[in-house]
């Protein structure tokens, strides 16, 4: 019986297209990536349908973490001198007696979450060790607390420029803290805020949904 000789097929698969796609995706991600900025405090923001872009500079960021601690950050990409102005203003209005070295450290301090009484202690630490210090949060109360002075300092430092007030609250933080923060801002005649949220789609069937899909 003649044996039927099956041709031996190679198991080698041509991977070239596969590699092409893989590297295309890789290139896309390298291009599109924007590294997450260092976040010493973990905050999960709520979702909203808002589409307004967030300002990255000329802004004051007030963070509320899940335990209700309040932190204060100045966002200024280009002009680093505002940091000096803020710390000087706070220093003189609250008689903190900060040294020049401590003021220089403030430039690089990403976030402040201590009472004025502990600010010296925070600024005495080198920048890379500051995140190890457990910050108790800026004291706030129904009259605004110490946050009022920070906002006041920032407001005067940014005088003549547009300044945005960002509030980044955690999902689980309680409303009273948020109210106190608002109070601290209101004391400085600031009535417009930007709440930082994660984007989400407008729910189907609602007015906003119809509006957006009519336009888009």
């Amino acid at each position: 019986m003649p044996s039927v000789k099956l041709p031996k097929k190679s198991t080698f698969v041509d991977m070239t297209p596969f590699v092409d796609v893989a590297f295309l995706i890789l290139t896309f991600f390298i291009m599109a990536t924007k590294f997450k900025p260092p976040e010493p405090i973990e905050v999960t923001t709520p979702n909203s349908v808002s589409t307004t872009e967030l300002p990255e500079s000329n802004a004051v960021l007030i963070t509320i973490d899940k335990e209700g601690k309040v932190y204060f950050t100045i966002l200024s990409e280009k002009d680093k001198s505002v940091f000096d102005e803020v710390i000087n203003a706070v220093n003189s209005s609250r008689n903190l007696g900060l040294t020049d070295a401590e003021k220089v450290t403030y430039r690089k301090t990403y976030i402040v979450g201590v009472a004025f009484s502990q600010l010296k202690q925070l600024l005495d630490l080198p920048v890379d060790q500051q995140k190890n210090l457990k910050q108790p949060g800026i004291p706030v109360d129904s009259t605004g607390g110490e946050l009022t002075y920070w906002v006041q300092a920032a407001k005067s430092a940014f005088a003549g420029q547009q300044l945005k007030y960002l509030i980044k609250g955690d999902n689980n933080s309680k409303y009273p803290v948020f109210k106190d923060v608002i109070e601290g801002l209101k004391k400085n005649d600031v009535y417009k805020y930007n709440l930082i949220t994660s984007p989400e789609d407008a729910p189907a069937g609602t007015e906003l949904y119809k509006q957006r899909h009519k336009a888009g």
Binding site: V19, A22, A32, K34, Y191, N194, I196, T197, S198
Partner: peptide
């Protein structure tokens, strides 16, 4: 290639946060 893709997928922030305006 895929290792790098995975790395970039994890480090990337695709949806930048948005601002919700509030006037008091």
């Amino acid at each position: 290639g895929f290792l790098l893709i995975t790395f970039f997928i994890f480090t990337t922030t695709m949806s930048s946060p948005k601002a919700l305006n509030l006037n008091m």
